[in-house]
């Protein structure tokens, strides 16, 4: 079959191109612009080359916030993924319980992020908050505004509360898509509950779990609003994750050059981890 050549068709691409240019390329290029130059306002720029990148890469402050960021992300993935699967497994499979559970489960996902932060802040206050006051009444010395461990504990608990539902919903969808015949076949074989989970359910949920892990990684790695409202990055810099530190640098100290360089490095880390993770999962997929 001969293809018709019509270069005019390119005109149809223009609206999308303009849209993408305005919402992605141009803002990103502004950041790139700042990352390589120094400015004192009045639209005066001086070329700095890779100076800001070197500075950021060697700065202990960046290493510390990057370390905190990875630690936080790994902890919440480690809790949310198994917990989400476990909850999904116990959810009802039919009847009125299904919609009730699904709605209840999606509630935390619908709450605006700064509301979540404010809620947990008040909830955890050691003097008047229900959680904080109760813990102290039980004899725990709990104060998330002053003690590093308590601040981490509260931030992680808040994130688990807010986002485990997403993993639950995805896992539940994955579980529901397994045909009943698989369970029957396993029953005929006399397979144990654990064998059914590891040999049927987990392999069948692999794709949705990949998506769940990827989404949770990206979201938690870029977390800003909730810890900002809850702890403001404190006490000290104990919960200053990458984005909180970035905003401090850009808007607090007005170090636009280093902040822009840091943004780009941050962006590439997210991109790199996602790419590596996705390629690994997909390679496994092809193999099996």
């Amino acid at each position: 079959m001969n293809k018709t050549v019509n270069q005019k068709a390119w005109f149809f691409v223009i609206p999308v191109f303009v849209l993408v240019a305005f919402n992605a390329i141009i803002p990103l290029m502004t950041v790139v612009n700042y990352a390589f130059q120094e400015t004192f306002g009045n639209n005066v720029f001086m070329w700095e080359g890779t100076r800001w990148f070197k500075q950021i890469m060697l700065s202990e402050r960046f290493h510390a916030s990057l370390g905190r960021q990875f630690l936080f992300t790994f902890i919440i993935l480690f809790i949310q993924i198994p917990l989400g699967i476990a909850i999904a497994l116990t959810m009802p499979k039919e009847g009125i319980g299904v919609p009730v559970c699904l709605v209840l489960m999606s509630m935390p996902l619908l709450i605006p992020w700064n509301v979540v932060g404010a809620m947990w802040n008040i909830f955890a206050l050691p003097d008047i908050g229900f959680l904080g006051h109760s813990l102290n009444a039980l004899g725990f010395d709990y104060n998330f505004t002053q003690q590093i461990g308590d601040a981490w504990f509260t931030t992680i608990l808040m994130d688990v509360w807010h986002w485990t539902s997403l993993v639950v919903l995805l896992s539940y969808a994955g579980l529901r898509s397994i045909q009943p015949a698989y369970y029957q076949a396993a029953e005929i074989d006399g397979a144990s509950r654990w064998a059914i989970f590891t040999k049927i359910e987990l392999p069948k949920m692999k794709k949705v779990l990949t998506i769940a892990i990827l989404l949770r990684f990206m979201d938690s790695f870029m977390i800003y609003t909730e810890p900002f409202v809850l702890t403001g990055g404190g006490p000290g810099n104990a919960t200053a994750f990458l984005s909180i530190d970035l905003v401090k640098m850009a808007l607090g100290q007005f170090d636009l050059g280093p902040a822009a360089a840091m943004s780009l490095i941050y962006f590439f880390i997210v991109l790199l981890v996602c790419w590596v993770f996705y390629t690994l999962m997909m390679r496994n997929e092809e193999k099996s």
Partner: peptide, 29 residues
């Protein structure tokens, strides 16, 4: 219970353990 009844069943859908090799699948019962 079905486990005690020495029954086997084949379905319209192709039901095999996804992570097992063909050998392990056949050997599973």
């Amino acid at each position: 219970k079905v486990q005690k009844r020495n029954v086997s069943m084949v379905y319209q859908q192709f039901i095999n353990y996804p992570n097992f090799t063909v050998y392990d699948n056949i050997a599973s019962p």
